[in-house]
Design a protein around this nucleic acid. Structure first.
Length: 312
DNA sequence: CCTAATCCCTGCTTGC
DNA sequence: TGCAAGCAGGGATTAG
C-alpha cells in the first residue's frame, strides 16, 4: 500500500541515515524477502558486505541505493506491508523482521527490512549502463513517475489514446506511469471527476493533462504531511505514520458524503480490489458501443501503390 | 504486439 | 466461541 509519497518519505530517511555508510554484515532471515535476488540470501549478504551506499534514489514505488565503486545497486520494494527501519542495535527484533543490515561505523543504528505479507523485498542488480543515478537494469521497464521532471506528458497522453483500456487501469500500469496505486488513483480520479471505467481513448489532451495535474497535486499534498497511513504498517524509517488519511476524499469513504456534492460515496469491487467514487460527480461512461466493424475514414481513391503487409 | 487474469502472502474483520 | 471466508493489493508471470 505504500505508494509514491510513502516511498519518497522512506527514501528521504535512507538518504539521511544510511547513505554514505559501509555495510559490515547482512542477515537474511526470510528467503522470500530476497526472492528477486537470483543468487539467494547468502549471495546477497556476501556481495553487500564491505560496500558503501550512495545517495538513495527512487522511481515510482521502487527505491535503490547505488553502491559506490561498482555498477550495482541495492533495489528495494516495500510491496504492501514492507518497512525499512533505522533502529538502534539493541532494539528488540520486530515480529516480521526479514533482513538486517549492520554497518562498520560507530553510529549505533542498523537498517531493518520488516514485512508482514512478504510482497516486498531487497535485491542486488547491475545498473543501466550510463545511468548517472544507478538505475537498476531490473526496473528499466518501469516508467518515470509524475514527480520526475523528465516525465514525458506528451508521450503519456499519446499512450493513453492508443491503449484500449480504461483510465484507472492505465493509472495503475507502472509501464505507463509509475508510483500510482489504488489510493492515489481513486483520489486523482475523484478530483478530476472521472469514472474509473472511462476508456482512455476518449480522453482529450486537456483532460489527460488535468488528470495528471491532479495526480501530482494529491501526491504532493500527501508528501507534505508524511504520507498516508491506515495503520502502523506504513511508516517512515523512524516508525512514524503520516497524516494524509484524514485528507482523503475518495478512498475508504464508502457511504460517506462526497465532499463536493454530499452524495453518498460508493465502493465497487474492481480487479480483486475496490474502487471508491462519487456516483454523481464521476458518472460512468456510456456503455461501449456493440462491437461492429469500425468505419475508419478511408481515402476516396485507393492508394496508387500497394502497402506491404509485412516488412519482416 | 497488446490486454486481462492469476498468484503470491499474513493478519485483521466479518458472518454464520 | 470457532471456523471460514473476505479483504487489503503490487507486480511478475501466464494465458488468451
Amino acid at each position: 500500500m505504500p505508494e509514491l509519497p510513502e516511498v519518497e518519505v522512506v527514501r528521504r530517511g535512507l538518504e539521511r541515515w544510511i547513505s554514505g555508510r559501509t555495510v559490515a554484515e547482512v542477515q537474511v532471515l526470510h528467503p522470500r524477502a530476497v526472492r528477486r535476488h537470483l543468487g539467494g540470501g547468502e549471495d546477497f549478504a556476501a556481495r553487500l558486505k564491505g560496500r558503501r551506499a550512495g545517495v538513495a534514489r527512487r522511481r515510482g514505488k521502487y527505491l535503490w541505493l547505488p553502491l559506490e565503486d561498482a555498477d550495482e545497486s541495492v533495489l528495494a520494494h516495500l510491496g504492501m506491508s514492507g518497512q525499512l527501519l533505522v533502529q538502534p542495535h539493541g532494539a528488540a527484533d520486530e515480529k516480521h523482521l526479514r533482513i538486517r543490515v549492520r554497518f562498520n561505523d560507530s553510529i549505533g543504528t542498523e537498517l531493518r527490512f520488516v514485512d508482514q505479507r512478504t510482497f516486498g523485498g531487497l535485491s542486488l542488480h547491475e545498473t543501466v549502463e550510463g545511468a548517472a543515478d544507478g538505475l537498476p537494469a531490473a526496473i528499466a521497464h518501469i516508467a518515470r513517475d509524475p514527480l520526475d521532471p523528465a516525465f514525458d506528458e506528451a508521450a503519456f497522453h499519446t499512450a493513453l489514446r492508443r491503449r484500449r483500456t480504461t483510465v484507472k487501469r492505465a493509472l495503475l500500469d507502472q509501464s505507463l506511469i509509475s508510483g500510482v496505486g489504488n489510493i492515489y488513483a481513486d483520489e486523482a480520479l475523484w478530483r478530476a471527476r472521472l469514472h474509473y471505467d472511462r476508456p482512455t481513448a476518449t480522453l482529450t489532451r486537456p483532460r489527460s493533462v488535468e488528470l495528471l495535474d491532479h495526480v501530482r497535486d494529491v501526491m504532493n499534498a500527501a508528501l507534505a504531511v508524511g504520507g498516508t497511513s491506515f495503520d502502523s504498517l506504513y511508516v517512515n524509517v523512524n516508525g512514524e505514520s503520516g497524516y494524509f488519511e484524514r485528507s482523503l476524499d475518495a478512498y475508504g469513504r464508502e457511504n460517506e458524503p462526497c465532499r463536493r456534492c454530499a452524495t453518498p460515496m460508493r465502493r465497487r469491487p474492481w480487479m480483486n480490489r475496490s474502487s471508491y467514487f462519487c456516483p454523481r460527480c464521476q458518472r460512468p461512461p456510456r456503455p461501449a458501443a456493440p462491437a461492429r466493424p469500425a468505419a475508419p475514414a478511408r481515402p476516396a481513391v485507393a492508394p496508387r501503390t500497394a502497402v506491404p503487409l509485412s516488412s519482416s
